[in-house]
Design a protein around this nucleic acid. Structure first.
Length: 293
DNA sequence: CTTTAACCCTGGAGGC
DNA sequence: TGCCTCCAGGGTTAAA
């Protein structure tokens, strides 16, 4: 289940293995991903060089000069790993990029929720693509501030957990890290987004960054060669999960039983002791905004 | 506009 | 042992 840290680790692996490499051949064995891979894609990439690989949210932006940019999403079961040249295709290996230095990158995705989309524009202009246009700010960007978060949550009745998960305010907070970040920030996942206070929002900004940083650091140490290995993806995260999939287990802070609820058809885990519902205070709001109808 | 739910897909777990 | 059902996940899309 690739979340932002795994995507970033994959990006770093791609850069270290194949940056500045001319493409020898792109092979497509299975076109039926989330959207079908265009049959013309391999020929469009002929005679190009992978000059860089960026990341936007959970999208990888592989820039092939001079043709354009390949948007790659790993969905929930996708991975990109190196394989030896001419190695056998395993089940669910769908795409391969063979580079001049001998590196072969294999796209593997059992559930085919991922996507490989061709965008004939440079990576710098790839934000114009409809799939990237509405993404929120990067969690490690300076633009991800308390005020930005509060502005995004303002007036929203949806639960804070779902607001974070939607990715319109900040990207990279998947289902696992949403629960973990809210726990760290001591914010109840079912609290209305618009009722999140400034101190709560401030804690969330810090908590989201810390949660992602911790996972990324773990990935960096235990999955240093993530792209260049056949190890178990995602296995490291459970070592650090305080609440995710820990229902009925004691909270590491207060030892109350972790609860599991469903929000938007997705599981949420939280500690009923540490994460309290904050009571709304409508009187204060109207007093500060007398002009609002 | 906002909010909710269905959908895409397969592997694994649990029930019988 | 096998067959059935359910669940997990991201994110787009359609519907309310």
């Amino acid at each position: 289940m690739p979340e932002l840290p795994e995507v970033e680790t994959t990006r770093r692996g791609i850069v270290s293995m194949a940056q500045a490499q001319p493409l020898v051949e792109m092979t497509v064995r299975e076109r039926r991903l989330r959207w079908p891979i265009a049959p013309t894609l391999p020929s469009a990439l002929a005679e190009t060089t992978l000059v860089d690989c960026h990341r936007r949210g959970k999208y990888l932006l592989m820039r092939f000069d001079p043709a354009g940019t390949l948007l790659v999403h790993l969905g929930m079961s996708g991975s990109i790993r190196t394989v030896p040249v001419d190695s056998l295709w395993r089940a669910h290996d769908h795409v391969q990029w063979h580079f001049a230095n001998g590196t072969c990158l294999r796209y593997h995705d059992p559930r085919r929720f991922g996507a490989i989309i061709w965008h004939p524009a440079a990576a710098g202009q790839a934000t114009e693509h409809p799939l990237l246009a509405r993404l929120g700010v990067e969690p490690f960007d300076a633009a991800f501030t308390v005020d930005h978060l509060l502005a995004g949550l303002k007036g929203k009745k949806v639960a804070i957990k779902q607001a974070l998960l939607a990715g319109h305010i900040v990207v990279g907070v998947g289902n696992i890290y949403a629960s973990e970040s809210l726990f760290r920030a001591r914010v109840h996942p079912q609290q209305a987004a618009g009722e999140v206070s400034k101190p709560q929002a401030a804690r969330l900004v810090v908590a989201i960054r810390e949660t992602l940083t911790d996972a990324l650091d773990s990935g960096g140490s235990t999955l240093r060669d993530y792209v260049n290995s056949s190890g178990e993806p995602g296995a490291y995260f459970t070592l650090h999960a305080a609440v995710y999939e820990k229902q009925d287990k004691p909270c590491p802070v207060c030892e109350r039983k972790i609860r599991r609820v469903v929000q938007g058809q997705r599981a949420t885990y939280f500690c009923p002791g540490c994460q309290r519902l904050r009571k709304p205070n409508p009187a204060r709001k109207t007093a500060n905004n007398p002009k609002k109808p």
